[in-house]
């Protein structure tokens, strides 16, 4: 999956979790940029990303990712394994 396609797929998960199809997620997007992205919703988001790409994040990753770009890095790496 190309980086662009990956971002698009992740964006669709965001639409579902945040119930907002106008969301336009970018690599540099952080929790502060998305309405409703609090610690509770972060857990739902992680679950849906794991489900969508059939991967598991580690505990450190869940707590440590700084922006969407870092999330994409992890997905891309896991999916390659």
């Amino acid at each position: 999956m190309s980086r662009e396609a990956l971002l698009k797929a992740v964006n669709e998960v965001f639409w579902d979790v945040f119930d907002d199809e106008s969301l336009d997620i970018r690599e540099e997007t952080t929790a502060a940029d998305v309405n409703g992205w609090d610690s509770l919703r972060h857990i739902t988001l992680i679950e849906n990303i794991e489900d969508r790409f059939d991967i598991r994040f580690t505990m450190l990753e869940v707590n440590g990712m700084k922006n969407v770009g870092e999330m994409l890095d992890i997905i891309a790496e896991r999916a390659r394994e």
């Binding site: 610690s39 857990i43 739902t44 679950e47 489900d51 994040f57 580690t58 505990m59 869940v62 707590n63």
Partner: peptide
Amino acid sequence: DPKMYYIAKLPISIK
């Protein structure tokens, strides 16, 4: 899901 328990004290997985 152990990581969710450690991160959020969530004893039942979201799934």
